[in-house]
Design a protein around this nucleic acid. Sequence first.
DNA 1: AAGCGCCTCAACCGCATGGGA
DNA 2: TTCCCATGCGGTTGAGGCGCT
Length: 236
Amino acid sequence: MANETTTAAMQGENLRKGPWHEEEDERLISFVKLLGSRRWDYVAQTSGLKRSGKSCRLRWVNYLRPNLKHGSISAEEEMIILKLHQKWGNKWSMIARMLPGRTDNEIKNYWRTHLRKKAVIQDQGNFRFIQEDDNSPNSKTYNGESYNPFVDISDTQNSCYAAAPVSDFGTSPYETRLSDWIPEFQSDQSEIKSQLDSTTTTTTTTTTTHSCNFYPALFYEENDVWGYSGSLWNMD
DNA sequence: AAGCGCCTCAACCGCATGGGA
DNA sequence: TTCCCATGCGGTTGAGGCGCT
């Protein structure tokens, strides 16, 4: 049985794709409890699921893992996402680590569907849209990848972002919250810019106090923002 | 009620990374 | 040092749901 499945997996044949069935979920949960959430190819083969290890891992990480929140993103979480995306760009896994119970996939989807067009900052008295631009002089690197959270694209005629007029925010449910956050956004941005201008190492000793009461690990330990490798996950 | 288009999100794909042989 | 494999990450896709006409 396992040998047949192994062979099929190795040959890339007979592997199921698409939505997971409840029985598959139950089976995967059982075998992850038994074998641990590592060696996904082995889990896939041993369990007899006709899924790739990659698919099993994804299903576990994004849906079956304990302590996941399945409800809608709260206003506080939304604020965190906006702020962290402003700081880090599309570093979804990093952002997810700051939001216990949320997955990178969930945050990425939420950003794309709810927040992307609403990500505005107040810059020199004007609202401007932002997105990362790897070719910008402000681009920095993280894990070998370049990114830049500070690029103003409001002048980009062909950008899809330009299609969303600022006036739309007058009726947006997000506007009130953004209006509340904007002063903080502004101070954060200048703080981050100064960090980027000086150094990208993790030796900064900034002790700025922020007003978020929900995620102290991020907002009160600014000295480790760039090198943060911990996790707020409690899987036990 | 039916058709159409848009939105959401689960899942896939390809590439990067890290560790071990 | 190099190669291979498992894992992780970010971008993309497509099915299903929902609202509008």
